[in-house]
Design a protein around this nucleic acid. Structure first.
Lengths: 159, 159
DNA sequence: TGTAAAATCACCCAAAAGTATGAGAATAAA
DNA sequence: TTTATTCTCATACTTTTGGGTGATTTTACA
């Protein structure tokens, strides 16, 4: 959990450290200023420079909807939602009154199978599957299988 | 009576007024002192703010020459994307040759909309959407829209 | 400026999906 | 055992989807 926390808040930590260093630097510059009274312009210049850089950095860092440009950079990251520990939302499941078989059909539906293919998997007729899907749609209050899958995923009825 | 009273307590009144003025003066001096003591910090803060804004403005305005920098920064940030900020997999996208419009249709498809509804959203005809979906299926190498959505999500083409 | 890719639309046909209704069999619950 | 639910299947019908083909118009780019 500790390393995880560190990793997750990497930016914040880095930012904090940077800020600390920056403040330290400023403090140092301030002392310099007191010692050499004529360094005021230099001090202000340094401030201006540093914060201009900070502004640029902030802008580049935090404003990246410039997908057009960033395109070539965003390489190789691929494996987002892998470590899946799916937890079925039984409350919602019971609330909706979905039967075991209906959930089963819903799961297969989510994998992109056709009704015919689902029927084959479950060794029942196509009509049976149609009945199930109809009931699923009714209970989920949707009209199409794509909506059903979308909603089921949203409700954690499905991984 | 009135003048009499005033005259009689002249000293006291003067003293009181003097005291009041003095207190007021002290108060004012105190404020001045506070402001003066922090004038430097305030000044530096203003400088910092202004130049931070300037930096942001510069970065946004002259983003073209700064792209190189953006690239490096972004690349370092790579892995820690645990938050739900969806990052589109542009490699795969380009690899598959999906056009902008096709991706758009795919996205709407993923929300469970019918072709007719998608056509309505995009202000084009149903036939056009059918053409798009067909091409999407072809490029994704799938047969049905449910499969397309499933695969698109797996490939991070879609949140 | 000409070419290629993308976007648009149409028509036809077939397959799949979805709706409505009814009904028999298995199962769980009372 | 009776009852309610679930699961099963069927038939008929409508809507949606998907495949194939071809054509016109934009748009981007060399």
């Amino acid at each position: 959990m500790r390393p995880d926390f560190l990793i997750r808040n990497k930016h914040i930590i880095i930012y904090g450290i940077s800020l600390a260093i920056l403040l330290f630097l400023l403090r140092w510059l301030q002392l310099r200023l007191i010692v050499f009274n004529h360094a005021f312009e230099i001090y202000v210049g340094a401030i201006a420079l540093i914060f201009t850089a900070l502004g640029i950095w902030l802008a580049l860092k935090l404003i990246k909807p410039k997908v057009q440009i960033v395109e070539h950079i965003v390489e190789k990251v691929h494996e987002p939602e892998s470590t899946d520990t799916f937890k079925l939302n039984e409350d919602t499941l019971n609330e909706l009154g979905l039967s075991k078989r209906e959930l089963e059909v819903l799961q297969l539906m989510a994998t992109g199978l056709s009704n015919q293919e689902i029927a084959g998997q479950l060794f029942v007729s196509l009509n049976t599957i149609k009945t199930h899907t109809s009931k699923v749609f009714e209970k989920l209050d949707v009209k199409r299988r794509t909506q059903a899958v979308e909603k089921a995923k949203r409700l954690s009825l499905i991984p």
